[in-house]
Amino acid sequence: MSSSRRNRSWSLALAAGASLVLAHPALTAAQSAKGKAPAKTPKGAKAPPVDVAAEQARLDGADAKAAADAAARLGTSADPAAHDALLDALATGVDPDVAVAALRAVAMHPGKDDLAVVGYYAHYRDDQVRAAAAAALGALGGVGAHKAVIAALHDDSAAVRAAAAGAVTAGKIKEAAEPLLQLLAKGDPASAKALAVIADVELARFIGEQLGQVPDGLLAECLGAILMRPDFGNEAAKLQVVRALGKVAGPEATQALADYVSATPEKPPRQSRREAEAMVESRLEGGE
């Protein structure tokens, strides 16, 4: 069997997508190393074209550091060949550091057929690789990817759960509410913001009722983040959240209420703001 990197039989399920070559500033190997996201092109700046063939050769080489760097460069290219090269590399196996870079790169130009490859890496044994896969799945979108993101919320690694929560946030995956609530109850810090992003009025009410079941700080963080969402509910819904926050002890709740007061204009007058303000003053007088 040929070992050609273009042999489509290596890849799990790749499909050629429409290609568009985008210019992008060169990335250093250090930037693309594990744990660091590739830099984004400054708005309006024109990125230099990527030599896909050359980068692919580096990606396919035995030098993991160079391969990771090449993966990051290929991610900046909208050329379907660049995307294919990344998927092929992942499908045929790479060093974990290269996998992290390649998954991030794939997520920059997600394709509808990426799920088979990226989904496999969602179970990879290295935590950082799984975290990168979870983030990439969020970028992919679609039912299958969302299911995989939700599954990643059950991961033993906090880093992977955090990446999955980030994917929920990015994709506003409402189906993730239940595991996120369970994570909130377990005190997982990644859950609060993600829940806040997907919470509707009903979910916000339910979250408010979790007083005593969820660590106060996290509960306050979650309710506070809901309050800060401009798209969240009407005045009555906001008032409900403020009152729920008012029941939560601790400085985090006070800070969340204060933030809401600061972020909400005085006019037109709103009861939620008035009550939040009164709560903050009362707490400050009480020494909180």
């Binding site: 799990l12 993991a64 196996g93 060093d95 044994r125 290295d126």
Partner: peptide, 12 residues
């Protein structure tokens, strides 16, 4: 799949 995905992984 396992052999391919982990052949460059030191843990494997």
């Amino acid at each position: 799949r396992m052999l391919m995905a982990y052949r460059a992984d030191p843990m494997f």
